[in-house]
């Protein structure tokens, strides 16, 4: 039974280390892809159809300027006032990303005409 507990504990420890590793990767991703506080450009990516329908409302803000379509389908690169990362994600299902992060820039043909 002690051996069983030891094995179970070892599995938990391994899972904990794996979770910590995943968390580290997530942190790295967040650090890379999350928009900075002083950034004016950001990429808005709707994660659901509802978010895609709500996205124009976010883009219709007065200080928001749509720069281009993003490389990702349905995403836009904006400049100016941008919604809060957590609020946009939680309320509208829109992911606000760092526009300068790899892959998050405007699509080559994405400039809005």
């Amino acid at each position: 039974m002690a051996m069983g507990c030891s094995i179970k504990s070892a599995k938990f420890a391994t899972a904990a280390f794996a979770a910590q590793s995943v968390l580290a990767v997530l942190i790295s991703v967040v650090m890379i892809f999350a928009p900075r506080g002083n950034d004016t450009a950001a990429m808005l990516y709707p994660m659901t159809a509802e978010a895609q329908r709500a996205l124009p409302e976010l883009l219709s803000q007065r200080d928001t300027l749509i720069v281009s379509r993003a490389a990702w389908d349905g995403a836009f690169v904006i400049r100016g006032a941008r919604p809060s990362f957590f609020n946009a994600l939680m309320e509208r299902g829109v992911l606000v990303l760092n526009a300068s992060a790899p892959g998050c820039g405007p699509a080559p043909q994405g400039l809005i005409r």
Partner: peptide
């Protein structure tokens, strides 16, 4: 978030390799 798992290890008194790596 990054402190959660180390805190769990500290509270459980875990000192194994995985805990140390975490």
């Amino acid at each position: 978030l990054l402190n959660l798992i180390p805190t769990w290890c500290a509270m459980r008194g875990r000192t194994d390799l995985n805990a140390r790596l975490a």
